[in-house]
Design a protein around this nucleic acid. Sequence first.
DNA 1: ATAATTTTAGGCCAAATGTACAAAAAAAAT
DNA 2: ATTTTTTTTGTACATTTGGCCTAAAATTAT
Lengths: 203, 203
Amino acid sequence: MKETKRKILDKSLELFNRDGFTTVSIRQIASELGISHSNLIYHFNTKNDIVIALHQELLEKAITLNETTIHHPNFIESLFNSTKNGFKILYQYRFLMIELNTILKENEKLKHIFIEIESIRAKMYRIVINRAIEEGYMREQEYDNEYDFFILTIKIFSDSWISSSEIYETTSSQEIIEKYCSLFVKLFFPYLTAKGKNEFLNF
Amino acid sequence: MKETKRKILDKSLELFNRDGFTTVSIRQIASELGISHSNLIYHFNTKNDIVIALHQELLEKAITLNETTIHHPNFIESLFNSTKNGFKILYQYRFLMIELNTILKENEKLKHIFIEIESIRAKMYRIVINRAIEEGYMREQEYDNEYDFFILTIKIFSDSWISSSEIYETTSSQEIIEKYCSLFVKLFFPYLTAKGKNEFLNF
DNA sequence: ATAATTTTAGGCCAAATGTACAAAAAAAAT
DNA sequence: ATTTTTTTTGTACATTTGGCCTAAAATTAT
């Protein structure tokens, strides 16, 4: 990637995370970089193009992560690790989640991509849960579609923990990620078997 | 309340919900009402003042609701009903939740109010859960602070189901509210006792 | 070395927004 | 009836923003 393009993406991410996507203008980004706004527009026509590029980056990082952690033998350990890594990456691009609705509203293209990915994620969770049941870590459903609802809950949590932390938390990024990470994995606890709960609490 | 003031609040709510808080300007609200923007400013100096007034309205409705439903004898029934009513009211003011971070970022006053209320809500949930345990509807904690974490989860869900629905759902308001309401109460299911689960599934 | 292409800068325009002020119109008080 | 107060309007200004066009500078290709 061209150096200027790279610099634009880095600075945009920094400013979006710091001041919010909506309030930061293309001109501000250019100004903070010490380049002309025309130059910035030459590389990215609109703010939306920048977001799409940043989102693409996030995606690639997430995919890389997935490939390295998916074939982990132990369910509990794998749950803890992949959550932590996933949360870390997401937090680097937190402006995306904080103003998700606004961003998707004016960016139909990104919205499609986003929904598509969420659907894939849901299927992946379904597979993971099924395997956890087979291996005796999670219990069977106690009513129809119980785990479909659970996956929906997970989805909502994943999409919104960053927004929530932005409002209520005042500690460091590190601590925030750990707190919500821990909260996320605890969502699974009540669905674990005795064996699963045991391993969980030992962690 | 003065008639004009009332009309401004109603129209603002309508436009904020429809087009998003950030994109709607004071001038647009005035224009849609057929009054001069100077007149609008006479009543509400800034958009933030309008939000605060709307939030106040939401609050008053929520408090009224609370007073009428809090002393319900049956835990399960009370959970279902108060959730449904609460969700309905919140959905009327959905723009608040959809752009919560943006709104609170530029409105320190509202942020304090919001955090204060959330803290009260958390305490209320704690009381409700304790009573549910005493009455044999919910099980005891299986590890330290389990219910504190659960309450945090509830809080995050309550703050974000509307944002999520805005992205993924295409059905009617009615159906959306019912869906997420049902999802919310299901969060409690794994923590119920056999007695609780039984009553729950009968509902 | 020169031509072609890519990258960068500067300036200008139109639209939108918040802010401020003065004056008209309406309503209320005396 | 006429003052006073409240409500409403019109207008003008400064700022910001995105969009567009042209030219200069830098880089690359021939």
